[in-house]
Design a protein around this nucleic acid. Structure first.
Length: 499
RNA sequence: GCCCCCAUCGUCUAGAGGCCUAGGACGCCACCCUUUCAAGGUGGAGAUCAGGGGUUCGAAUCCCCUUGGGGGCACCA
């Protein structure tokens, strides 16, 4: 085993985001490719916004994607495992307190009595003067007496980290050498709130150090924050990890992907019937490529080929069409039993929503599978595809009758004739191969185009113009119901246009 | 505003100085297959490699500038 240790550190302040999922995936691919360790750590120090429901969404979502981690919590709200626990920041408070005390004792951090309102006013003034927002260091050199005076006022101090002057540089695994002057990072920053809870930039460093994280792979939005982290690692006397900043996932307008402009919750993709194989495959190829022309790759294949040096530097627009194409690819690759298994949830939802009146049996699904597997862009499309087979009473949109190329009289005449032919085939030999020849013959005899006849039957028995192949559909419907629906369509069309 | 990052078809990308008349995929268009819809097959349109300067015998590839885009600058993560 290598000494590679990477982590995904989501905060349970929202549902699992597509960007978080991709960052998790890249960390996972890197760890597995290198024979390293992949860790899940929950950054829940924002007590106001964090919730167990979001934690569940995140943990479940990562599991759903098929990612496995070696250390951390396995279940929302449940225990965690691993030699560097606990893996929830709110349970690591003593660690941060200890680290903060050390920085405080070494005067690398100092208490700041400025109120949020005061800081806001300063920031506003700087903005108005076109100056970069930056802490004015009012509390940086307070005397004990001044501190006592603030305390007497009842002010509770936050703890601020002293930012040293100088140039910070590091070799980003994706971007190469990056240099940032600490004069440009906004001045001394707060590491512990007035209420004693620690802040992100601080906890992330304390934990990455404590958990011996070797490579920090995260989104590019953290690139500018990296000097803060490096400064903290140094102040704490800890070795710096390697950093790698992934390109951002973008909205169609090329801004950072957001809930407002894109669908960002993994749960929504799951609910719409995207399969994990496709989502993983797609996300891996957003910002990375194998360097070959391979496109459809499983998680193990991705692990095998992953190379962080081939990760793109520029942001990547999320292309839902391409995801859907990949989803179709993977649905077609699923073993039949597996597909049926995954379809069940979606059929149940369809039943729940009243789209169908009964659940198809496994046998029925299995028989239908060959014609639906290549027609499903998402699992959620199943109701649309075959729902008409499982409704008790079919409603036909009157605008579909007569069919496009025929008038009502011809349509009705055709249905009457087709009903006779189908009835003559009989229940025993009700098979696709038995149905097609006589119906073709019928069209021939009457001088109709077979396609027009088939369309009339299709609309009559399914209520739709696009369906799986007609004869398979009729067989799935069954002898009795096919005749019944033909009769009803004839009745309905009669009422529509009485002659 | 300041700092940082980035820049190849509409989109995701291949490209590590000559293999590039820039390749693939999605999407789009046409044709084939075909009872509809898909799937599949074949072909096509689509990028003067953001622009301009260098370096070099030779640049999409290296350097600089410009332009454009993005991100960061919280007692959020």
């Amino acid at each position: 085993m290598s000494d590679v240790r990477v982590r995904i550190a989501p905060s349970p302040t929202g549902p699992l985001h597509i960007g978080t999922a991709r960052t998790a995936l890249f960390n996972y691919l890197f760890a597995r490719n290198q024979g390293g360790v992949f860790i899940l750590r929950l950054e829940d120090t924002d007590a106001v916004r964090s919730s167990i429901a979001f934690e569940k969404d995140i943990v479940d979502g990562l599991h759903w994607l098929g990612l496995t981690w070696d250390e951390g919590p396995d279940v929302a709200g449940g225990p965690d495992h691993g030699p560097y626990g606990p893996y929830r920041q709110m349970k690591r408070l003593p660690l941060y307190e200890e680290a903060a005390a050390r920085l405080r004792a070494a005067d690398q951090a100092y208490p700041c009595y400025c109120t949020p309102e005061e800081l806001d006013a300063v920031r506003r003034r700087q903005e108005a003067a076109h100056e970069p927002p930056r802490y004015n260091r009012r509390c940086a050199l307070l005397t004990p007496a001044q501190r006592a005076a603030f305390e007497a006022e009842g002010r509770r101090p936050a703890l601020r980290f002293r930012v040293a002057e100088g140039l910070i540089s590091f070799d980003d695994m994706i971007r190469g050498r990056v240099e940032i002057d600490t004069a440009n990072i906004g001045g001394d920053f707060i590491i512990v709130r007035a209420d004693g809870t620690p802040l992100y930039h601080f906890t992330v460093v304390v934990d990455d150090a404590a958990m011996k994280i070797s490579h920090v792979i995260r989104g590019e939005d953290h690139l500018s924050n990296t000097p803060k982290h490096i400064l903290l690692f140094r102040a704490l006397g800890e070795p710096e990890p390697h950093f790698g900043h992934l390109p951002l996932i973008l909205n169609p307008d090329r801004t950072k992907m957001s809930k407002r402009k894109s669908q960002t919750a993994i749960a929504d993709y799951i609910e719409q019937g995207f399969v994990r194989e496709a989502l993983v495959n797609y996300l891996a190829l957003l910002g990375w490529s194998t360097g070959t022309e391979e496109e459809v790759l499983s998680l193990p294949e991705l692990v095998e080929r992953f190379d962080i040096r081939h990760v793109q530097k520029a942001g990547a627009v999320f292309d839902r069409e391409r995801l859907e194409w990949l989803n179709g690819q993977w649905i077609r690759r699923l073993p039949p039993e597996e597909l049926i298994d995954r379809l069940r949830t979606f059929l149940e939802a369809e039943l729940e929503a009243g789209g169908i009146d009964r659940m198809p049996s496994d046998g029925e699904l299995k028989a239908l599978l060959p014609v639906i597997q290549e027609r499903l862009p998402t699992l959620g499309a199943i109701g649309d595809l075959i729902g008409f087979l499982f409704v008790d009473r079919l409603e036909i949109d009157p605008s579909l009758f007569p069919t496009k190329r025929w008038d009502l009289a011809t349509t009705r005449e055709a249905l009457v004739a087709a009903r006779e032919v189908i009835a003559a085939v009989g229940e025993v030999s009700f098979e696709a191969d038995e149905l097609e020849p006589p119906l073709r013959r019928l069209a021939d005899e009457r001088g109709w185009k077979a396609g027009d006849l088939f369309m009339a039957i299709r609309v009559a028995v399914t209520g739709r113009t696009a369906t799986p192949p007609l004869f398979d559909t009729l067989v799935a419907l069954g002898y009795e119901r096919t005749l019944e629906r033909l009769d009803r369509a004839l009745e309905a069309s009669n009422q529509e246009a009485p002659r």
